[in-house]
């Protein structure tokens, strides 16, 4: 197929920059380990999930010197826990799932953007670098009360006890 010279130049520039772009995404993903939330870990039946660990006791647990684990369940139309308190600068591992339909866990203005699919556990690690009260909400339609499904993450500064 013949292609005019200018078109060939145009296509080469386009395809070239596309390849560079994809290589950058690949390096970020597989070289630096920056992936979207993901987990292949299976859970039991979503309706009985709160009988077995870890989801029998949702909450915030300290797992290391500056590391915390948030065990969270979501259900129509709320979360457990609904209020999470973590220190500034700590590594927070989220482990969350749904007890019924598909929900979301989204903290606006952060990269915490998780889909919670019944039967699966979604995992994601994040470090808050700003103190304050962050809103989290459900961003996958789950029924008439979807817009009410929310909670708060309170990030406190351990050096400053007044917060």
């Amino acid at each position: 197929m013949d292609m005019p010279r200018y078109e060939r130049i145009w296509m080469n520039i386009g395809i070239g920059s596309l390849i560079i772009f994809l290589i950058i995404l690949g390096i970020l993903a597989f070289g630096m380990g920056i992936h979207p939330p993901d987990s292949l870990e299976q859970t039991a039946n979503p309706e009985t999930i709160d009988i077995y660990p870890p989801f029998d006791q949702p909450g915030v647990y300290q797992t290391g010197p500056n590391e915390y684990e948030v065990i969270m369940t979501s259900f129509i139309f709320s979360y457990e826990p609904r209020e999470i308190r973590v220190p500034l600068g700590a590594k927070i591992h989220f482990k969350a799932t749904s007890k019924d339909v598909v929900h979301g866990l989204y903290v606006p203005n952060t990269n915490i953007n998780l889909m919670l699919v019944p039967g699966h556990v979604t995992e994601y690690t994040y470090t808050f670098d700003e103190p304050g009260e962050h809103l989290f909400l459900c961003h996958e339609y789950c029924g008439t009360g979807h817009q009410l499904m929310q909670g708060r993450i309170i990030v406190y500064d351990p050096e400053n006890t007044s917060t």
């Binding site: 939330p37 870990e41 889909m115």
Partner: peptide
């Protein structure tokens, strides 16, 4: 952003998308 699908396959499909 959902669980149950391995990252490699997600990335591969991103390449095909582009």
């Amino acid at each position: 952003n959902e669980p149950g699908i391995e990252s490699f396959w997600k990335y591969l499909q991103v390449v095909l998308t582009m």
